[in-house]
């Protein structure tokens, strides 16, 4: 009777206004059997961390096109840590310049997807990140 499902939060932080990519990823994750909490546009880091907590997700996927990743991501990670959610995997998709990638990884971003990454690759990365993350006692 018991059944675990991967729960994932998909959010679109920042001010740019289209979430087509985020929706495509949400659907792909659903089709892979995950429960996807979709929160939509213009999410602040506070909203994202709080929703992740209330929904007890295994991973957070953020779509960032605005170039504000270096402002948004550290804050999201900081809030997750403050709340004790350091085992939640943070995945990022969007336009991220190569030179920022090492720093983001160092901060704790689990995976970064550039434009044109196939949904298959993304789904696989979510499964691996969650499987590899520290387990919850």
């Amino acid at each position: 009777m018991t059944g675990k499902k991967l729960r994932v939060l998909i959010a679109k932080p920042g001010l740019d206004g289209h979430d087509r990519g985020a929706k495509i990823v949400a659907r792909a994750l659903r089709d892979a059997g995950m429960e996807v909490i979709y929160t939509g546009l213009r999410q602040t880091p506070e909203m994202i961390a709080e929703a992740a907590l209330q929904e007890d997700v295994d991973a957070v996927g953020l779509s960032i096109l605005s170039g504000a990743h270096m402002a948004l991501l550290p804050r999201v990670l900081e809030l997750l840590h403050q709340q004790g959610q350091q085992d939640v995997q943070v995945m990022v998709g969007g336009i991220i310049p190569d030179e920022d990638i090492p720093r983001l990884k160092e901060m704790g971003v689990a995976a970064i997807f550039g434009p044109g990454t196939s949904t298959q690759t993304i789904v696989q990365a979510f499964i691996e990140a969650v499987g590899a993350g520290p387990s919850r006692g």
């Binding site: 089709d31 892979a32 996807v36 909490i37 979709y38 506070e46 709080e50």
Partner: peptide, 22 residues
């Protein structure tokens, strides 16, 4: 609802409840 095909789901009700954040 969960998808009968994959068992996954898109839970989108929060989109309309953003005023409650915070």
């Amino acid at each position: 609802p969960s998808s009968p095909f994959s068992g996954g789901a898109i839970l989108g009700d929060r989109i309309r409840m953003r005023d409650l954040a915070g």
